[in-house]
Design a protein around this nucleic acid. Structure first.
Length: 679
RNA sequence: GGCGGGAUAGCUCAGAUGGUUAGAGCGUCGGAUUCAUAACCCGGAGGUCACGAGUUCAACUCUCGUUCCCGCUACCA
């Protein structure tokens, strides 16, 4: 393996439209922080970069909705996020933001360099334009009627009512979210990063030279490379973001995914204006990106392609991506408020940062999605942190207090059992190191925990409380060794549980503190005075857990109620407008699933005039489509035909959408003649 | 639908290059103990390794197919 001089560690930039939750922590920030603390403790040169991602359309939408500026939104969440990371002990060397002046300069510079080298391709295409507000409209800025569910307020990229992904051109009666006027199509020019031109070296670099990447990361990259890479637009027509720094680009900004990863670089430069380059350009620097699985392609393909196109940067050596953490069986969701928010946890569990760190690491989604439950949180605290780790420390300190008034007794002659115990905990260092080097934090922490188990076993087997009546020399040796184990725990747990480690060091009066010393039995000297003993962890009661569970149940209930709220009644229409819709009844002659399409059913209808084919996206709700044959349905007869999956669909079959999104066909109460109109 | 990842004890997870009775933590049951936050220590029970074929002397491990979960992507007139 290549030897590096220093390590640059980045952690995915959280998007500043909401606070940070346990999913972010378990997937990215806790493992990154453990790794960085471990390297620092070893005395290695390491830099840990974080920051808020503050551009992009969702932030402008949120700002508009609240009647504030985008800057207000990002200021609010950047402040919350930064504070909560600090309080939680995520040890960034810098946590900055992409709305900073220096970031604008760095991102522009990188764009300009690539541009000057001819690294972009220009393309012109048509996009909706708001003539009243004089600006092009991002997908999210166009609202209209969802063709799927009829929701009048669907966005150009997605209908939030039915969850459907849309193109702006799909919307019926599109309107500008800015002025309310009807947008028109207009030509606009954008710059594209031609990923296809980078495919060859990416293939060699990832598939041949980085076979050691985690299976999920390697597999996802291979999948993309095998499909063939496409050029990706790097600019948008928007006024929130970094202006495209070339002539003729007025009103255009860098697309948020282009500017965000550059934030790693600009934040480094902000921290180290004079020496930042060695962290990004020296081949002897090891670059690591800690991310969640949703970010794999950006960090393994797109960002490296950008850096390569620029020409002077190093590429990541590894991209340890985690899977997702669920909460009590359901996907974590910011919009559905289904999350444990870090800033709320810090308030509700003061001083318990390490409990959450421990649980999230013990249950980290390293190889597959995992579930966080409050019951598990309580069990791990009470049965592991309190009962094994805390209890051992407490036993060692209480006994020392009792027999030696809080000073470290001298180590006497070692017997075979002592030596056997020492051998066991000396091994812990190598084991933990090996696991951490492979980003296996869950197992590494478990291995560190073994130190406490060894300590508990040592006390149980040697029984110093019995020997105290006959052989105080022996007791001195036992207590000395027990305290050495406690001191080792303080070192071993610093990366995992930094608050606990500090507390323990204070209680032991531990002066020296270095990863190299892990495994030694002379960390404390005879005669050293110990500090004041206190409990390392405290039990978490059932009521506390019940309250958290209740909080989630309340959220769930609130979500259900919200989901059942009928949509607002639409604008009145004239009778004539209604009469334009030609809704009719037909009998289903044939109905089957469209091959290779999950959601589509193909209907053959008798509409009284002949046969008509209509496709409908209701396959999920009618698993036995043949049962529909012979029944009647309502359909729009004068809908413009459209080709779907190679089949011409001549109309739209009407369904009612239930609160849970389920679609139910609309049909006449009694059989009627085919082709009659619905009025 | 395409591609990728996953499916192993009640729960959460380990199990390079196929090879003796499939492991750990927690939970559970039993025992021992009292220095310790009813904690610790010892021991037991618990698995047809998702399902079905195949390759092999031998498969949790390799190949093919099926089912379910997750992500990316297509699709919802």
């Amino acid at each position: 393996m290549k030897q590096f001089k220093r390590t640059t560690v980045t952690s995915a930039l959280p998007y500043a439209n909401g606070p940070v939750h346990i999913g972010h922590l378990a997937g990215v920030y806790v493992p990154a922080d453990i790794y960085v603390r471990y390297l620092r403790l070893k005395g290695e040169e390491v830099l840990f970069i974080g920051g808020s991602d503050e551009h992009g359309v969702p932030i402008t939408i949120k700002a508009r909705k609240e009647g504030v500026t985008p800057q207000d939104i990002v200021d609010r969440y950047h402040t919350i996020i930064k504070k909560s990371f600090e309080d939680f002990g995520i040890s960034f060397d810098i946590y900055s933001r992409t709305s900073s002046a220096i970031h604008r300069e760095v991102a522009s510079g990188i764009f300009k360099t690539i541009y000057d080298k001819g690294g972009f391709v220009e393309k012109t295409n048509e996009q909706y334009y708001d003539e009243t507000a004089n600006q092009f409209l991002a997908d999210r800025y166009i609202t209209g009627k969802c063709p799927h569910c009829g929701n009048e307020n669907a966005y150009g990229d997605q209908c939030e009512s039915c969850g459907t992904s849309l193109n702006p051109t799909d919307l019926i009666n599109p309107r500008s979210a800015i002025s309310g006027s009807a947008p028109v199509m207009r030509e606009t020019k954008h710059w594209y990063l031609p990923l296809d031109q980078h495919e060859a070296w990416l293939r060699q670099w990832i598939l041949e030279e980085h076979k050691e990447w985690k299976p999920n990361v390697y597999g996802q990259c291979k999948s993309w490379l095998d499909m063939g890479l496409q050029p990706r637009a790097v600019s948008r027509d928007l006024d929130w973001g970094i202006p495209v720094p070339v002539a003729g680009a007025e009103g255009k900004v860098l697309y948020v995914w282009f500017d965000a990863p550059i934030g790693y670089i600009s934040n480094t430069k902000e921290l180290l204006p004079d020496s930042w380059e060695k962290w990004w350009k020296d081949p002897e620097t090891r670059l690591l990106h800690f991310i969640g699985k949703d970010n794999i392609v950006f960090h393994c393909i797109v960002f490296p392609a950008m850096l390569k196109a620029e020409g002077s940067y190093i590429l990541p050596d590894n991209v340890p991506a985690n899977e997702f953490l669920n909460l009590e069986g359901d996907k974590i969701s910011t919009s559905r408020n289904w999350a444990v928010w870090l800033h709320e946890y810090l308030e509700e569990f003061p001083g318990k940062q390490d409990v959450l760190r421990y649980v999230l690491t013990a249950n980290a989604p390293e190889t597959k999605d995992n579930d966080f439950t409050w019951k598990d949180f309580q069990a791990r605290n009470n049965n592991e942190l309190v009962a094994i780790f805390g209890n051992f420390i407490n036993r060692a300190l209480v006994l020392t207090q009792k027999y030696y008034e809080g000073t470290v007794p001298a180590l006497g002659e070692l017997n075979d059992y002592d030596r056997q115990t020492i051998d066991e905990f000396v091994n812990v260092k190598a084991d933990v190191e090996k696991l951490l080097n492979n980003f296996r934090f869950r197992d590494a922490q478990k291995e560190a925990m073994n130190l406490a188990r060894i300590g508990n076993k040592y006390l149980a087997d040697t029984e110093p409380w019995k020997l105290a009546k006959e052989d105080m020399n022996r007791v001195a040796t036992i207590m000395n060794l027990s305290l050495q184990i406690a001191a080792n725990l303080a070192i071993a747990f610093e990366p995992f549980l930094p608050f606990t480690s500090e507390k323990l060091r204070r209680m032991l009066n531990l002066k020296t503190f270095d990863w190299k010393e892990l495994g030694r039995i002379d960390l404390l000297k005879a005669g050293d005075c110990l500090g004041t003993p206190e409990l390392l962890f405290e039990k978490i009661e059932d009521e506390t857990i019940a309250a958290q569970v209740q909080k989630l149940l309340d959220t769930k209930k609130a979500n259900e109620v919200a989901a059942y709220k009928p949509h607002a009644v639409k604008e009145n229409v004239a009778f004539d407008d209604f009469m334009k819709m030609d809704i009719r009844v037909a009998t289903v002659l044939d109905c089957q699933k469209v091959p290779k399409a999950d959601k589509l059913l193909q209907f053959k209808l008798n509409d009284g005039m002949g046969e008509r084919t209509i496709l409908s996206g209701i396959a999920a709700y009618y698993p036995n489509p043949e049962e529909l044959i012979g029944t009647q349905v309502c359909f729009i007869a004068n809908f413009e035909p459209r080709k779907l999956r190679g089949v011409i669909s001549e109309g739209m079959i009407l369904s009612a959408e239930d609160a849970d999104g389920k679609l139910v066909l609309i049909r006449p109460e009694a059989m009627v003649t085919n082709g009659v109109e619905v009025k």
